[in-house]
Design a protein around this nucleic acid. Structure first.
Lengths: 305, 305
DNA sequence: GAGAGTTACGCCTCACGTAAACATG
DNA sequence: CATGTTTACGTGAGGCGTAACTCTC
């Protein structure tokens, strides 16, 4: 179970080919063959069926373990090295698309005003990659968003000892075409929409809704990107319903109806290494407003936690 | 970051001695010295200060990562091997002390009656070890308990892909000496007890209460064992308050007052490998009652999930 | 100076590359 | 038969043990 062999194994499985893995990893085919053979000998089980190359049941099981395992290994290395690294003038922020809402953007602006010498670089990424980016040290701070019960933490993939803190919680709305029969309602219960057609997008994963509310939520059109504008256009055209934070929905062609029950919120969380580099800690504190510092917020009803 | 070196590192750190680690691991002192040197060279950082041997800040950081990392590695191996192992006639169950409540015990009895050829071996262990036991394959099924908001999952340490399922949820009571001024109350709010003295025991970790309710809950006497009888005796004698599931509190010398707010329950969860060995899956199904099969339960008000 | 960690050095294992053999579509 | 994996074999790096060295209490 040498991580070296594990890396080779996942690479071979991903490519479905020994030789492709060999050229990616800079080995000869022969070496790859020997490494896989060594791993199989170690476990006493065949892990790959050859020609075509595909994992056996045991191999599939190992693949599920190997990826997070290797991530944690890289994360551990990055975290240890970070303790020794000097202070940085550059702060790298990673965020999921919906995480940078008006309140977060405003707090970030205020924090930057107070730290004029600090250079901030922001990038967006998919939710699944966010924890990995922070864990491996490719980002100093991460902003993740998701749907949760009020004041419940988000379920983030575990990539080792990290700190999370609530940043904002905001009401969720159902996005409807303006002509939709339900568009006139003052509020909606999700249970009543369980049989409606829903957009399938990473911005509002239906699997999460089923977790929180119950089975149902049949998938309509699947949009695999994470662009909010696109999702709004699709929702306006009636391709299906979707759930978004209230602040993300502009007027025009669409109607936003608050969700009455169950009580759910769009939550944004900050995550960073347990011992973040100096500037990151300061910025983290600025973003993570405590209730008593909730002062000049405008344009969004958020409840900090 | 070879796991081999990581193992050596944690062993050395635990013993505070190269030679002690050497004899535990079956190497010479020299080999240990070289392994630690190799690890330090790999990371480019000193990890241990010698004479006396103790971790540097970077070393402490690495230790936090290494232990769960090595656990997951062992867990992955065990899980892959389990997929290939044949069916077992012996089912090993591990449980925290409060997890085996009357409802769980009754369900277990009924399941065993239906599977007479199945041998079941039950052991209790501390909560922190439970996930590791199941992950590493030393137990087929684990029963964990803890305090949570209703229908919220427990926070269990992550030891890789595992399945959890709610088993029972039961009301919590505050355990008071019979003569206690609050003993006459029909119910109590935890917020009102935030300044009272609390027993410090793994059965009712004060840290968890602070998570759920807020700061406070000053620690009184610390009992490091997990024997329910002992805790009850300490509570009866007025050493401090504690929270237990209603079914764990007998009469005599003590009074149990239900918790009114916040709404919290004592929850029991079952955890097992994603692909449990055959008999384990059957027993898991028997323990994890769905609402419609809640029938002959007696002696305890539990709400299955 | 005794106990405990490090360094020097030789041995042996093991992992890689080359190249030939082999399987499979 | 072509493509791609396995096997055989030689080589080199690296990890371990022995033993001499060095540091610190």
């Amino acid at each position: 179970m040498d991580p070296h062999l594990l890396t080779t194994f996942v690479t071979v499985a991903r490519h479905g080919s020994f030789s492709a893995a060999a050229s990616e990893l800079g080995y000869t085919q022969s070496a790859i063959s020997q490494q896989i053979a060594a791993l199989e000998a170690d476990l006493g089980l065949p892990l790959l069926r050859r020609r075509p190359v595909e994992p056996t049941p045991a191999g599939r099981r190992l693949l599920e373990h190997a990826e997070p395992l290797l991530l944690r290994l890289r994360a551990a290395r990055a975290d240890v090295l970070r303790t020794a690294a000097g202070p940085r003038h550059l702060l790298r922020l990673a965020a999921t698309p919906l995480a940078v809402n008006p309140a977060v953007a405003a707090r970030l602006a205020r924090a930057r005003a107070r730290m004029p010498r600090l250079e901030v670089r922001l990038r967006t990424c998919r939710a699944e990659r966010l924890a990995a980016l922070v864990a491996e040290g490719h980002a100093d701070l991460g902003l993740a968003d998701g749907i949760a019960a009020p004041s419940d933490p988000l379920r983030l993939p575990d990539a080792g000892p990290m700190t999370t803190a609530g940043v904002t919680e905001e009401d969720l709305v159902v996005v409807l075409p303006s002509g939709h029969p339900l568009a006139g309602r003052a509020s909606l219960r999700l249970a009543d929409l369980i049989d409606a057609r829903w957009l399938q997008t990473p911005l509002c994963p239906l699997a999460r809704l089923r977790d929180l509310v119950g089975d149902g939520f049949p998938a309509g059109l699947a949009y695999e990107g994470d662009d909010v504008h696109t999702v709004l256009a699709l929702a306006a055209a009636g391709h299906g319903l979707t759930l978004l934070p209230a602040s993300a929905v502009p007027g025009g062609g669409i109607t936003a109806v608050p969700v009455a029950a169950p009580r759910l919120v769009h939550r944004v969380e900050l995550l960073h290494a347990a011992l973040p580099p100096g500037a990151a800690a300061a910025l983290a504190a600025a973003l993570t407003l405590r209730p008593d510092t909730q002062d000049l917020e405008r344009g969004i009803k958020d409840r900090s936690v």
